[in-house]
Design a protein around this nucleic acid. Structure first.
Lengths: 138, 138
DNA sequence: GTTCTTGCAAAATATTTGCAAGACG
DNA sequence: CGTCTTGCAAATATTTTGCAAGAAC
């Protein structure tokens, strides 16, 4: 194992741990909610958005991040908590239409449904839209 | 009631039935799956995309269409089958990553979950991504 | 005539790619 | 040296708005 936790995460997923990729992993770890490309761009000032995008693309292909579409017209990325390709750490998300943040409802797993014959699902996304606790009280 | 079914749908939702809006309703009715703005633009040649967009915006505000985000980076619209604002006609959707179509899984309703206190959901979206029957066989 | 709607253009936002220079093995 | 990565720019794609002309009430 390497000396750095973020480095280990990358290596464990078969991704070469370059300096930029470690920055992206760190930013995702520090965030407590799924981040959009633009949000990451503002958070990682030393790295161009195309660099972040390419890192995220690799992460997605190597099952290191989930991609979810919120209702705000942009994709969001969050680190997978499970190892491997199972993607079995899925939980419900909530997009607040007032503050435009996307929350993880960590303790609410995505309920399973069975699909008709022939469909081969590879990922699933259960997303609410509405008012978050902070905004619904205002 | 008016003479035309599409006109009636619009009036029933409190939307003035202009010629362009009737065209958009007709296109949505004719499609058997949720349509993106671009798809509708190609289908309705006589109407500019901003006109379609504004019609869809009104439809959404008046609960005549659902908006779902597929995995392909664009929003899709489908007619609500229920009346009123209940939005209780929700079903699961499936986005095919090969042919980039979005399917309604009509006979699979969205399973309910309970959210933590404070969240005020207004809509919900349960979306699979993967291979559709047609593409998974290839 | 006042309000609503339309068409065109263009702004705003988001995503993705080309390419040459540099880093790495 | 050959491959992978980076940074900058720019091309795409999508969504949204401004505004003047026209239609509806």
């Amino acid at each position: 194992m390497g000396a750095d936790k973020n480095t280990d995460i990358l290596i464990a997923h078969g991704i070469r741990p370059t300096a930029n990729r470690i920055l992206v992993v760190r930013a995702l770890l520090a965030a407590d909610r799924p981040m959009s490309l633009t949000e990451l761009e503002h958070k990682i000032l030393t790295l161009d958005k195309s660099g972040i995008f390419r890192a995220l693309t690799i992460f997605r292909d190597n099952h290191l991040v989930h991609v979810i579409e919120d209702g705000g017209g942009s994709a969001r990325y969050e680190l997978c908590t499970s190892d491997g390709e199972a993607d079995d750490d899925l939980h419900v998300h909530f997009y607040c239409e007032s503050c435009h943040r996307t929350f993880c409802i960590d303790n609410v797993p995505v309920p399973a449904v069975s699909l008709p014959r022939g469909y081969r699902p590879e990922s699933v996304n259960y997303m609410f839209k509405g008012q978050c606790p902070e905004c619904s009280g205002k």
